[in-house]
Amino acid sequence: MNAAPVPREVHAELKGVTRIYPAVPGAGAKLPVHALGPIDLDLVRGEFFAVVGPSGCGKSTFLEVLAGLQKPTAGSVSFEGKPVGGHVPEGIGVVFQEDASFPWLTVWHNVAFGLRRNGVAAAEVRRRVEDAIAFMGLKDFAGAYPSQLSGGMRQRVCIARTLVLQPRLILLDEPFGALDAQTRLLMGDEVLRLWRRTGATVLLITHALDEAAMLADRIGAMSARPGRFIEIIATGWPRDRDSTIVGEAAFGEITGRLWERLRSESLKALGHSGVSAMAAE
């Protein structure tokens, strides 16, 4: 199962990226926390990359550093050849784990939000918003408020809100973590559809091995804290795929291999929470 030969163009690059949270004696953090790295990673333009790892391993920190929401303690991040740091560059879109839809705006205005604040012409706003709303299957809910929608629907609103800005790199931070398993499979299909249509590079953070195995071209397995990539697995799926690949033999092989690598890390992470004070030298 070889993927079609695509010209490899580095879209985002992380070099020796490390994140250490300093000690805050007053706020319960007596020791500095080494959350991440060092990490070296090249994201290839147009690929679907998934990051899996045990809880608390620094996956979200990784995403925030890549997005420019946090500065790395050491190392450098670049996006399309330009260094990232301090602010989120134009061209990167982020969908968060928490519901970030604004309850005081209708679905339509939520989706239009980012465009309006960035001085896009009204006709263009309309066109793009209607397109994104239709694409995410929110057409019948354009006038509804988020409080009237289910969690999955609200997450779609957030995806649509990111989509209208036409990001070239889309970062998804466990966007389906709060949804049930079946809805997650279906949302996975939608993400694949979105990835194919936009041609954007997608980075998905998830704790679900099957989700990573089903969606990604490459999967980075992250160690327990401090998060590092212990293995990067290429899945070799064709670009035109959907959730039905969960029935294929290769799918089982990939999840099996991921679990083999991550089992000991997950155990470490479990122990970490209880005895971290003693373990920290």
């Binding site: 925030e64 997005a67 929401l69 602010h87 989120v88 134009e90 990167i92 879109g93 982020v94 968060f96 928490e98 519901d99 970030a100 604004f102 939000f113 980012g114 604040r117 960035n118 957030c158 809100r161 990111t162 800005l165």
Partner: peptide, 23 residues
């Protein structure tokens, strides 16, 4: 105010003033 609103505002390229008035 959920902290995620602030992060969302930053990824939506809002200025600090826009963040205060619109979020």
């Amino acid at each position: 105010i959920p902290p995620v609103y602030l992060r969302a505002a930053r990824t939506l390229q809002l200025s600090p003033w826009q963040t205060i008035t619109t979020v």
